[in-house]
């Protein structure tokens, strides 16, 4: 709002990453020499390894990615999640994995991430509202986790749910959507190597407004499919209900693949604007499957994507 005081410091004013990393390395060296034990609390560095699935496009700034969010559990304004998500308790965190799996149960966040090697996946992110970002996610393939819990042959879909905790998630006090937030994928979509569970970005643990501690990222689908702060994963035989589809099925389909040719009742999907370009940022054409067609188009061979939108 007008008149509200604003900090004119940007993330770019913070010590550059290389500098603080080398500073930390220096401290580690000091520690090794037996002189240390003074290192202050610093953001954990996840040490994610690069991936061949990353785009070479310029990622959005950490500030863009963490200040412009759709996370209705914390309010419907784009800046609401950044303002309210800090109240969310993410430790301890448990994900219930059940349904058609061999080893159902409550898995702690630590149990889930301990065996995996975290990768950096720099993906394009396309919101159904016709804006986009490029995000350096950190995570691992959902397929790794599904293989560990053992998917039964009859399973055909994966259902996801977000935490419901209105005392911390202030947006859940209103019936904007039918909580919990639900999403789902077909099993082959879920097993695709591009589909990841992300636990961080910019090599740091996931900011709460971006879906801490663990969220889905499906880069060829509109952003709302990439469900945040997951507490349940269930393998099912039937296509699971999904929140936006339940709220307005005419506008939001189960598949919701990025598709410039299928116009949405609210927004033309033909073009998009990358966040962070200022007041005069230009639109540019949206690509089929958000540019991931080479990897994922086969999943939909023979399907009428105007019907299965």
């Amino acid at each position: 709002m007008a008149g509200r005081w604003r900090n004119d410091l940007n993330w770019s004013d913070v010590t550059p990453r290389e500098v603080y990393l080398s500073r930390r390395r220096l401290m580690a060296g000091v520690g090794a020499a037996g002189l240390g034990a003074v290192a202050g609390p610093a953001l954990a560095e996840l040490g994610a390894v690069p991936s061949r699935y990353s785009t070479d496009e310029e990622p959005n700034s950490f500030e863009d990615i963490t200040s412009y969010n759709n996370f209705y559990e914390f309010g419907t304004g784009k800046d609401d999640p950044a303002r309210h998500a800090e109240n969310l308790t993410t430790e301890p965190w448990t994900v219930r994995i059940d349904g058609l799996v061999d080893r159902p149960g409550d898995y702690s966040f630590e149990d889930i991430v301990r065996p995996v090697e975290l990768e950096e996946r720099i993906y394009r992110f396309r919101c159904v509202e016709a804006w986009s970002m490029v995000v350096p996610w950190v995570g691992f393939e959902l397929a790794d986790l599904l293989e560990r819990v053992g998917v039964q042959p009859s399973a055909r879909y994966v259902a996801f749910e977000t935490l419901v905790r209105p005392e911390e998630m202030v947006g859940q006090r209103y019936g904007v959507l039918d909580w919990p937030y639900r999403e789902g994928l077909r099993l082959d979509e879920a097993m695709h190597p591009l589909t990841i569970l992300a636990t961080g970005l910019y090599d740091e643990p996931m900011p709460k407004q971006n879906g801490a501690p663990i969220r889905l990222v499906v880069p060829w689908k509109y952003g709302f499919k990439s469900i945040k702060s997951i507490v349940r994963i269930a393998l099912t035989e039937e296509q699971p209900p999904t929140s936006w589809n339940m709220s307005n099925g005419r506008e939001y389909g189960f598949y919701s693949n990025v598709n410039p040719d299928v116009s949405h009742p609210r927004w033309s999907q033909a073009t998009e604007r990358k966040i962070g370009g200022g007041l005069f940022a230009r639109r540019f054409p949206t690509r089929m499957f958000n540019g991931y067609g080479e990897e994922v188009a086969d999943l939909y061979a023979g399907m009428d994507l105007a019907k299965f939108y």
């Binding site: 007008a2 604003r6 004119d8 940007n10 959005n60 700034s61 500030e63 863009d64 200040s67 412009y68 784009k78 800046d79 804006w131 604007r273 966040i275 962070g276 200022g278 007041l279 940022a281």
Partner: peptide, 13 residues
């Protein structure tokens, strides 16, 4: 404000 970053990363909207 929009021209100087005061309206956030998406000043147009």
């Amino acid at each position: 404000q929009g021209a100087t970053g005061g309206l956030g990363p998406e000043p147009i909207k």
